[in-house]
Nucleic acid binder design. Structure first.
Lengths: 186, 186
DNA sequence: GTCTATATCGAGATAGAC
DNA sequence: GTCTATCTCGATATAGAC
């Protein structure tokens, strides 16, 4: 793996674990086994490197979501696939995590990938719900946009509860609870 | 207000805005208009001061929640009161925010107030739901514990989406969506 | 209780040699 | 492309005077 590549991957890992504010160039260099000069040759600074790392994060999250959401099956099954997907719950969401970082939110260029990703995800889930409605899968028809926001929020909020409790239990309760509420509409 | 008091309040504000990792003793002192020696006289260090601030945060959040959840009305109305309560959505939750802070989660003593608070909140909401069931307010009876986890997660996740979008819209969608799903059970 | 001095270390970068 | 040197600040305290 190239030095530039190692720097990006190390940054992804550290951003996930420690956030933007808590991640130093020095720590990135050590984890990537790259020198100071090397880092500043490939990237203009911490923010530039973070942007590259974030772009890769959101791309990956999007692929993971698309994989389950485009699977065959009913809307409920596909959303179930999203909610029950294998996750490293106690580590949290590498993308949602950044929403708490003041320097990320204060920077339009660093925040943009987050906004774009969650916007896409909500729309994608709303689309799945709309398809389900059109196929007559719901007896009570849930509002697609609002319900999609619920699904995504439950996952992001589930991470918060799980980390606070140092246990995956609240996350599991939240996703199965959301699934049960939705299933009652079928 | 006493110096000690000003230090705690300044810390609360900075923890909310910048998190634990992003908050320095120096910044706290400046905001509190207190000297270095003053801070280290009243508190043993950053962690000690943060603990005092966090304890005050969780106490306040609990009072705010109890106020709406103990109000008269049906279970749906009381939960609606919790979900629709006035919030500074773009600033996020002062307690949930800390769940993303690696140094908070790594410290049992700093994490404990978060765990305790969310544990209490989930139980309190589950209790409200159970009361509603006993009064026959639900035609389809939702699981209290799982549904309570959904309610709390939706709020915490709603903050994440709102901050990512720099807009309160996703938060509002999520809470109204959750309310609609729950209302369909009545 | 509060102040100033001092100390150590890391953050975040720039400069120029190789 | 990578390395080492250097720079300026801030983080996080401790010490001791007042």
């Amino acid at each position: 793996m190239s030095t530039s590549e190692r720097l990006i991957e190390s940054t992804r890992q550290l951003l996930w674990e420690r956030g933007y504010v808590g991640t130093s160039p020095k720590a990135i260099q050590q984890l990537a086994d790259a020198g100071q000069g090397s880092m500043y040759h490939h990237f203009s600074g911490k923010a530039d490197l973070a942007l590259a790392a974030i772009r890769r994060d959101v791309e990956q999250q999007r692929e993971l979501a698309e994989e389950v959401l485009s699977a065959p099956g009913t809307a409920l099954e596909r959303i179930s696939g999203y909610l029950l997907r294998e996750r490293d719950v106690l580590r949290g969401c590498p993308v949602g995590r950044l929403a708490q970082d003041p320097d990320i939110i204060a920077s339009p260029v660093l925040r943009e990938p987050l906004e774009e990703t969650f916007h896409w995800l909500r729309n994608r889930i709303a689309q799945v719900l709309t398809e389900g409605r059109q196929r007559g899968e719901f007896t009570r028809e849930p509002d697609p946009a609002a319900t999609a926001a619920v699904i995504v929020s439950v996952v992001q909020g589930g991470y918060v509860l799980a980390r606070s409790a140092d246990s995956t239990e609240p996350f599991d309760q939240a996703v199965t609870g959301a699934l049960a509420l939705l299933a009652a509409h079928c």
